[in-house]
């Protein structure tokens, strides 16, 4: 995969995490005992396993008057099973797997690593997703049926005071206000060439503290999520690539020229 020429580029982006993921129809007949076989597929590069709570299915739908309807519902018996994290030895890369989700995360910590760039993460995501799909076909005669894809960039911008928001973001000019906390989010419905909505673009700026509570930062999270054009892997990867371009351009648009200079804007 090659980086598009027109995308803004930074030598020291404040990226803390990149997540690429898909949601698919649950594998028929899959149960928790089959998880070990899935781990075997990735064990060599991801030897450490952790268990996490399941992610609930999410659907991005449009139309109708009730805008809060994409929030989660609970129907039927409580879901069973768990989400597994397969971590690389340095814990900077991880795969998240449950019977209807597959995600790849790269994160800057805990062992500080330079950003490997999107193309490297996306290639790994596509390759590993194909390995999983091949396993589903061999073990369950199940053709992966992807119904949603997402890409998320989490940036951490360390600051002395939250009143500096205007230095970093075009959206905020706090002036003399002594800000204790800042939470801004907006959601954009993304439409195709025919004007049909197919994705949502979540934009969120949040003031956060380090665990010991002494250091301050703004967390800028940009997430693009929706239904790819078809249910196969190439379409999901194309969706994620489209989302990445929108995220990088949005990052350029909502951050200031002064901030971009600090992050080493190259183009």
């Amino acid at each position: 995969m090659r980086r598009p020429d027109n995308l803004p580029d930074f030598s020291k982006p404040p990226l803390a995490e990149v997540v690429l993921g898909v949601q698919f129809s649950p594998v028929p007949g899959y149960s928790s005992v089959d998880a070990r076989q899935v781990w075997e597929l990735f064990k060599e590069s991801f030897p450490v396993v952790e268990e996490r709570p399941l992610l609930a299915p999410q659907f991005e739908t449009f139309g109708g008057a009730n805008r809060l309807s994409s929030l989660g519902f609970h129907v039927g018996p409580p879901p069973v099973g768990s989400r597994l994290w397969f971590l690389s030895q340095d814990a900077n890369h991880l795969i998240q797997f449950q019977s209807d989700r597959f995600l790849t995360n790269w994160r800057k910590g805990p062992n500080l690593q330079p950003y490997p760039r999107f193309e490297v993460i996306a290639d790994s995501f596509e390759r590993n997703l194909q390995i999983l799909a091949d396993h589903f076909m061999a073990a369950f005669k199940y053709q992966i049926d992807i119904n949603q894809a997402e890409v998320s960039y989490v940036n951490l911008i360390q600051v002395q005071e939250f009143a500096e928001a205007g230095k970093w973001f075009n959206l905020c000019d706090s002036g003399f206000i002594d800000i204790e906390a800042l939470n801004t989010n907006f959601v954009q419905v993304v439409k195709d060439r025919e004007g049909k909505p197919y994705a949502r673009f979540y934009n969120e700026i949040q003031s956060v503290f380090s665990v010991e509570g002494k250091r301050k930062a703004f967390q800028l999270s940009l997430t693009f999520k929706g239904k790819p054009a078809t249910s196969g892997i190439p379409s999901a990867v194309a969706f994620v690539r489209d989302g990445r371009e929108r995220i990088v351009n949005r990052f350029r648009d909502i951050t200031t020229a002064e901030a971009q200079e600090i992050w080493g804007r190259l183009s």
Binding site: A56, Q219, K225
Partner: peptide, 29 residues
């Protein structure tokens, strides 16, 4: 570098109809 974070506690849970915009796919928090 801030390498592990906790979310700001500032008011989020008390704002009526506040809802997180994404599910917890991030590994940071």
């Amino acid at each position: 570098m801030i390498d592990s974070l906790q979310g700001s506690t500032a008011f989020q849970d008390e704002i009526l109809c506040y809802a997180p915009t994404a599910d917890p796919i991030s590994s940071l928090s």
